[in-house]
Amino acid sequence: QTVVIGDTTYHLNNPEAAQQIAKELAKKYGLKVVISGNTIKLK
Rank of each mutant, 00 (worst) to 15 (best):
Q1H: 14
Q1N: 11
Q1D: 08
Q1P: 11
Q1F: 15
Q1L: 15
Q1V: 15
T2L: 11
T2Y: 13
T2G: 04
T2Q: 07
V3L: 14
V3Y: 06
V3K: 02
V3H: 02
V3S: 02
V3P: 02
V4Y: 08
V4M: 10
V4T: 11
V4S: 07
V4G: 03
V4L: 07
V4F: 06
V4W: 08
V4K: 09
I5G: 02
I5T: 02
I5W: 13
I5C: 15
I5Q: 03
G6A: 05
G6S: 05
G6C: 14
G6I: 10
G6N: 06
G6M: 07
G6Y: 10
G6D: 04
D7F: 15
D7T: 14
D7H: 14
D7L: 13
D7Q: 12
D7S: 13
D7K: 15
T8K: 13
T8H: 13
T8M: 12
T8F: 14
T8Y: 14
T8E: 06
T8A: 08
T8Q: 09
T9R: 10
T9F: 08
T9G: 02
T9Q: 06
T9L: 07
Y10A: 02
Y10H: 01
Y10E: 01
Y10N: 01
Y10C: 15
Y10G: 01
H11W: 13
H11L: 08
H11E: 05
H11V: 11
L12M: 10
L12W: 11
L12A: 08
L12P: 01
L12K: 02
L12T: 05
L12F: 15
L12S: 02
N13Q: 11
N13K: 11
N13C: 15
N13L: 12
N13S: 12
N13V: 08
N13Y: 08
N14F: 10
N14M: 08
N14V: 07
P15D: 06
P15H: 09
P15S: 10
P15N: 08
P15G: 07
P15C: 14
P15Q: 08
E16V: 09
E16L: 10
E16G: 08
E16T: 09
A17F: 10
A17V: 11
A17H: 10
A17N: 06
A17T: 12
A17Y: 11
A17E: 13
A17L: 13
A18P: 03
A18R: 04
A18C: 11
A18Q: 03
Q19I: 14
Q19F: 15
Q19Y: 15
Q19N: 07
Q19A: 09
Q20P: 00
Q20N: 07
Q20A: 12
Q20R: 14
Q20D: 05
Q20V: 07
Q20E: 09
Q20C: 14
I21E: 01
I21G: 00
I21R: 05
I21P: 00
I21T: 04
I21C: 15
A22S: 03
A22C: 05
A22D: 00
A22K: 03
A22N: 01
A22R: 02
A22T: 03
A22I: 12
A22M: 10
K23T: 09
K23P: 00
K23N: 12
K23G: 05
E24V: 13
E24M: 15
E24K: 14
L25E: 00
L25M: 05
L25N: 00
L25K: 00
L25S: 00
L25H: 00
L25F: 05
L25T: 00
A26R: 06
A26W: 13
A26H: 04
A26D: 02
A26Q: 05
A26P: 00
A26T: 03
A26Y: 11
K27V: 07
K27C: 13
K27E: 11
K27M: 10
K27G: 04
K27S: 08
K27Q: 09
K27A: 12
K27R: 12
K27P: 01
K27D: 09
K27Y: 08
K28W: 11
K28I: 08
K28V: 05
K28N: 02
K28R: 12
Y29H: 04
Y29L: 05
Y29F: 09
Y29W: 05
G30M: 07
G30W: 08
G30S: 04
G30R: 08
G30P: 02
G30L: 06
G30Q: 05
L31W: 11
L31H: 05
L31T: 03
L31V: 07
L31Y: 09
K32V: 14
K32P: 04
K32S: 12
K32R: 07
K32W: 11
K32H: 10
K32T: 13
V33P: 01
V33G: 00
V33W: 07
V33N: 00
V33I: 14
V33H: 00
V33S: 01
V33R: 00
V34T: 09
V34G: 01
V34S: 06
I35Y: 09
I35V: 09
I35R: 05
I35W: 08
I35F: 08
I35E: 02
S36W: 09
S36E: 14
S36I: 13
S36N: 11
S36Q: 10
G37D: 05
G37E: 04
G37M: 05
G37F: 08
G37L: 05
G37Q: 04
G37H: 04
G37N: 06
G37R: 04
N38I: 06
N38G: 07
N38V: 05
N38D: 07
T39P: 00
T39G: 04
T39W: 05
T39E: 07
T39Q: 06
T39I: 12
T39R: 06
T39L: 07
I40C: 00
I40F: 05
I40R: 01
I40E: 00
I40V: 05
I40H: 00
K41A: 09
K41S: 12
K41P: 00
K41C: 15
K41Y: 15
K41I: 15
K41E: 12
K41N: 08
L42W: 05
L42V: 08
L42M: 04
L42Q: 01
L42I: 10
L42N: 01
K43G: 06
K43A: 10
K43F: 14
